[in-house]
Design a protein around this nucleic acid. Structure first.
Length: 439
RNA sequence: GGAGAGAUGGCCGAGUGGUCGAAGGCGCUCCCCUGCUAAGGGAGUAUAGGCACAAAAAGCUUAUCGAGGGUUCGAAUCCCUCUCUCUCCGCCA
């Protein structure tokens, strides 16, 4: 959420900045609402002040045992007018709030201007894509070839865009998550957290998924789909939601900053509207695992923290020996809550392309304002925090990258050195009688 | 799921219709005193808005005692609904 003060005092600038990210701010509607708000609020508060003063007088008079009918008459007519004014004010404020909640964050000055992902700017690359002297397969063929990846059965269980992994592949998936968690907690100073996978609407409002992106979420009702009323819970689309909301309505002591949390969770996305893209394989699923990094920081430190955050995510790819590049997203490609975003894209030989595996964003005070997440600042006053989040990394896509980059001519896959410890020393996934064995 | 108790400021805790944004304590900040320390004395110490102003300060004003609604001239206090916490019972991984 943007600062309404900023809209009142510098609307033109805000409109211009939002235009850069392709958002048309309804300035006229805002100005009209704001003018009305001002009028009604003044009027309402005037009436309230009258009432309060009269009530006080009544109280004082009664205490002295005086007759109060005169004052009572004086105040009697206020009731209806006040009620009406209050209702009107509520409505106008609600409309304003609704408008405010649907406005995306302003891009940071350093963000390149552009319409879509073709205007993202490459910052750096790491590693050399490996040369293969055999015909390479994509991860689907590799996984199915091993007898360890089974989309058909997953479809039977749930439908499209779900996956079933078995044996060494399921274990490799787990190993990746463990490895990421261990690295971030032991080397990067994050506190491991276990969080709810079902969250309230308030939490989703806080991080910006609601009210605008309800279509992308899965909703859950206790007692089944035909239960009446609004959904009680939503499945988390990312651990960013529960982790960041830990500080909602809190005032964090200055000396507790920065807070750095990591959590491994499943993520659930309906991805409405993206059908037809990445229909094959593990790239785009309704359910996937992710290790999420969140920083809650002092506003002066958030861009410093963003660089660290990206570095921590990169470290995982480096240790796994997976080539990648880091992109700064342009204004038109950034997410709703972000002021600046770096994407990390890993090299996928099966697609002969770099594909997003991590997205690291500084949301500045955008989420904090929605959440009323504050810290007690140097002058003793509460001030809004800055929040950042980033994948460190998307586990499913990392698995894809490992399969494709570490594939061998005979269809086997070499287990990266750093993961063997988590695989009981196993150094290769290969097909076997056992793997091929039915369900 | 059943029965009961509760939710007040950074924390503890008083307050059952009026001058209460809220006693008292703790903590914190500043000052005084004390040759260090400890003890003592004094003052201050919620948040978010609005108005006005070029802006800040001061000022005026509104809201907030878990949330929402209601009764009333007036609600922390009375009524209703909800949420959460705790205790006991049941069930359950």
């Amino acid at each position: 959420m943007l600062d309404i003060q900023q809209l009142r005092t510098g609307l033109d600038d805000v409109v211009q900045q939002l235009a850069k990210r392709g958002f048309a701010f309804p300035a006229d509607a805002f100005n009209a609402l704001e003018a009305e708000r001002k009028k009604i609020q003044t009027q309402t508060e005037e009436l309230q002040a009258q009432r309060n003063a009269a009530s006080k007088k009544i109280g004082q008079a009664k205490a002295k045992g005086e007759d109060v009918t005169a004052i009572m008459n004086e105040v009697a007519h206020l009731g209806d007018a006040l009620k009406q004014a209050e209702a009107h004010l509520d409505q106008v404020k609600n409309d304003l709030q609704k408008m405010l909640l649907e406005i995306p964050n302003l891009p940071h000055a350093s963000v390149p201007e552009g319409k879509d992902e073709t205007h993202n700017v490459q910052m750096r690359t790491w590693g050399e894509p490996r040369r293969f002297d055999f015909d390479i397969k994509d991860h689907v063929s590799i996984g199915e070839g091993l007898g360890l990846l089974d989309f058909e059965t997953a479809a039977k269980l749930s439908g499209a865009r779900f996956s079933l992994m078995k044996g060494g592949l399921a274990r490799l998936h787990r190993a990746l998550a463990q490895f990421m968690l261990d690295t971030h907690t032991q080397e990067h100073g994050y506190q491991e957290t276990y969080v709810p996978y079902l969250v309230s609407r308030d939490s989703l409002l806080g991080t910006g998924q609601l009210p605008k992106f309800e279509q992308d979420l899965f909703a859950v009702n206790a007692g089944g789909a035909d239960s009446t009323g609004a959904p009680e819970y939503h499945l988390i689309p990312t651990a960013e939601v529960p982790i960041t909301n830990m500080v909602r309505d809190e005032i964090v002591p200055l000396n507790a900053l920065p807070l750095k949390y990591v959590s491994h969770t499943p993520c659930f996305r309906s991805e409405a509207g993206s059908y037809g893209r990445d229909t094959r394989g593990l790239i785009r699923q309704h359910q996937f695992d992710k290790v999420e990094l969140v920083h809650i920081v002092h506003p002066d430190r958030s861009y410093e923290a963003l660089e660290q955050l990206v570095g921590h995510a990169e470290k995982i790819l480096q240790k796994l020996g997976l080539p990648y590049r880091v992109m700064t997203l342009c204004t038109g490609d950034m997410g709703f809550s972000a002021a600046k975003t770096y994407d990390i894209e890993v090299w996928l030989p099966g697609q002969n392309a770099y594909r997003e595996i991590s997205s690291c964003s500084n949301c500045e005070a955008f989420q904090a304002r929605r959440m009323q997440a504050r810290f007690r600042s140097e002058n003793g006053k509460p001030a809004l925090l800055h929040t950042l989040n980033g994948s460190g990394l998307a586990v499913g896509r990392t698995l894809v990258a490992v399969l494709e980059n570490y594939q061998n001519a005979d269809g086997s896959v070499t287990v990266p050195e750093v993961l063997r410890h988590y695989m009981n020393g196993l150094d290769q996934l290969r097909n076997s009688e056992q793997n091929a064995n039915k369900i």
